[in-house]
Design a protein around this nucleic acid. Sequence first.
DNA 1: TAAAATTTGTTATAATATAACATTATGTAA
DNA 2: TTACATAATGTTATATTATAACAAATTTTA
Lengths: 130, 130
Amino acid sequence: MYKENNLSKNQQIIFDLINKSSEPLKAYTILFNVQKKGIKAPPQVYRALDKLVKTGKIHKIESKNAFVACRSSSCEISKATAFSICESCEMVDEISDAKLTKYLSSFSDKKGTKYKRFNLEFFGLCKKCK
Amino acid sequence: MYKENNLSKNQQIIFDLINKSSEPLKAYTILFNVQKKGIKAPPQVYRALDKLVKTGKIHKIESKNAFVACRSSSCEISKATAFSICESCEMVDEISDAKLTKYLSSFSDKKGTKYKRFNLEFFGLCKKCK
DNA sequence: TAAAATTTGTTATAATATAACATTATGTAA
DNA sequence: TTACATAATGTTATATTATAACAAATTTTA
């Protein structure tokens, strides 16, 4: 089963839930929604989430402690993430902008240090809420 | 007292602690360290933190749930923040880069939406850990 | 098929954060 | 200066987010 799609049973259940959601899901919301599928305890959820984040299937929205499915084909191993977050309706969109990614991926600070990973969160009002 | 520096008693105590720290401080670490000054309960800490964040005196490092003093003179009302985070020693530095700030502040997504605020976290190895 | 690595199940608990309410202090404007 | 509004404080309780620790089962690899 693992080879087929690279996701274990619990990982698949949890990924499916996040993937079909139109909004970021929190760990305990996920837990509540998968209990009927036999996932009963927080560690089961967090372990799946950890793995899904590591493999780039989902991203964590740090400012919300919530998880979204990756919508960008280019981030299998997710090291360059950007999101827009609506401060009114809480909607989150992943931003896939090649120029932005290039700019930030090649950014080096004043000491000349480059970074292998970044996460960017924009805040404002989405189209609907404006 | 409030007029002098715009910070209340608890806010000042907590700001001083964060400001003199060389690393990000977590809320309960702060709580532990200010109990001798009469701040005894989490809400007192969180309220001061909230206010200090709002006024730009400190920033929250979202990926660490920890707080640092603002080192950038240009972010009194903090709407454009960037940090470098060492994945080995956990050191955090605020990045003050006018070009970066300008680039991100004027960024507009594919729908043409602009954002009024952003937070960027870079991850990698600091000079020492490299 | 045996060993290694990964995933799962489970209980308990740690760490982070807020609700709610009473009180006091400070700022503002008549 | 009084009264009104706003902000800050103190307090108890509780909600939310996340991990430790250990036993067992499954899958992968060699």
